Structures are given as structure tokens and as C-alpha cells.
Simulated scan of single mutants.
Amino acid sequence: MGLIHIDLFTTLDGVAQAPGGPDEDAEDGFAFGGWQAPLWDEVVDEQVNTGMADLDALLLGRRTYDIFAAYWPHADGGIARLFNSIPKYVASREAPTLEWANSTLLGPDVVAAVRELRDRHANIHVIGSLDLVQTLFTERLFDRLTLWVYPILLGGGKKVFADGVVPTNLRLIEPVVASPKGAVMQRYALADGTPGVGDMSAGDHEG
């Protein structure tokens, strides 16, 4: 069974809306589109490229798909060649025309369709696609969660952990990496069970 990776760029206060550019997503008057650009550096670039090395399919929400489809077919470089060649699967409540090569619209039962994708691919990456990510969180339908956390606070905007989160255990699977401009990469695996509780006053914290 293949792995589903969720890859997200987020501010320290959890905002993941429109990291890439001013026109990416201005919904609800979001004024900080492109907040990631001033903080991008060679370490983040290397982390992103390394993290994508194993992917053999993209799973995207409609908005992210449209952004990618407008950019990557005209780009150069290794990531562009990879994205253009692999299958792309799109979750949408509508029936858009998908003109980017190797793109397929998922059926109305997105959860069932995503589960089926695991039998076709070894490493499926979800990038951005915040509405879709909430569904995956609700269903615990992911295996890896990679967050690039940036040292800024925006105070408003679409959040990584919004309406889909259910109690879930995660396990840190790689050492945390910090970039020169302060971005911190954290990579987790989904773990069994739900978060436990204890009583600090009863000595549960002793070790």
C-alpha cells in the first residue's frame, strides 16, 4: 500500500494561505499572498527538492491544481519535468476541464477514490490544497505530514489545522532542520491511537 504525504508551508500561527504569490488566493481579503518568498533560501530549496524525489503522483485540490497547471507546464528544471510527467489527481466539487497532461478528476466520493489511489502509487504527495487536506485529516487518510514553519505571524488567513482535525497521534521521523532565514522543517508519520492524558501533579512527568 502506498503512502500519502501532505506537504505544507505555514506561518508560526498556522496560516497556509497563498504562500507563493499575491494572486494565489486573495479570498476573504487576504493581503499577504507571497509571504513565503522573502524567507525562501537554499536550505528550504534543498529540503523541498529532496522531499519530492520519491513522489510518483500528485493529489491536488482544484485551486492548487489551477495554479500549478498555469505554471509548471511552462517551467524548466527537475521539479517541472517530474510534475509534468507524473499522474495528477484532482478533487473538485465541479467538473472542470483538466488540460494539464496526465490529469484525472476524482469521482464524487473523494475518500474512496483516495483510498484506491494507494493501490496504484507508492508515494502520493498533496501540496497546498487546504480544503482537501481537512478531509484527509478528518479521515486520518494520510501517512506523512511535512510542515515548513516560517518565523512570521499573520493573524488571519486559512489555517493548516482548521475544520478537519480529529484527535491524532503523530511521530517525528526525522531531525528538525532549520534554514538560515528561520524556516523549520518538521516531518511526521501518522501514529496509532489518539492522544493520551495524564496528571502532571501525580508524577506522570517524571522520567
Rank of each mutant, 00 (worst) to 15 (best):
T194H: 11
L170P: 06
A18S: 08
G107D: 13
G207W: 11
M200E: 15
V197H: 12
E94M: 14
N123Y: 09
V176H: 11
E174T: 09
D109F: 06
E116N: 10
D56E: 06
L106N: 09
L117I: 06
H125R: 14
K181N: 12
E27F: 13
V177D: 06
S85V: 11
F32W: 15
V165M: 15
G203C: 11
T10S: 15
N169Q: 05
R63T: 11
P195L: 00
G51W: 00
T135S: 11
V133N: 01
P87G: 05
V177M: 10
G20V: 07
R171P: 09
G164Y: 05
G156V: 13
K158M: 12
A113C: 00
V15N: 01
K158S: 08
G198L: 08
N169P: 08
V126Q: 04
R62C: 07
M185Q: 14
P38G: 00
F83S: 01
S103D: 07
A202C: 02
T10I: 04
V90S: 06
Y65M: 01
K88V: 03
D23E: 13
R115L: 04
L153M: 15
F161A: 12
P73R: 01
A183L: 07
G182C: 09
G29V: 06
W100N: 01
L153R: 13
D45V: 07
T10L: 11
G14I: 05
Q134W: 05
A112L: 01
L145H: 05
H74D: 14
D163H: 15
G21N: 10
D56H: 05
R62D: 15
F9M: 13
V126N: 05
A112T: 08
R187S: 08
L105C: 02
Y188S: 02
D56P: 04
R171V: 13
G77P: 04
A53E: 10
Q186S: 15
I152C: 04
P151K: 07
V111L: 03
E46K: 13
I79W: 06
I6Y: 05
W35F: 02
S85C: 04
Q47K: 00
G21T: 09
L12Q: 13
F9L: 08
W72S: 00
H5W: 12
D54F: 07
P108N: 11
A191C: 07
P167Y: 09
W72D: 00
L117C: 12
P87A: 03
D192R: 08
K159C: 10
D119I: 02
Y89M: 08
E24W: 06
N102T: 07
L170C: 09
P195S: 02
I4Y: 02
Q186Y: 13
R81F: 03
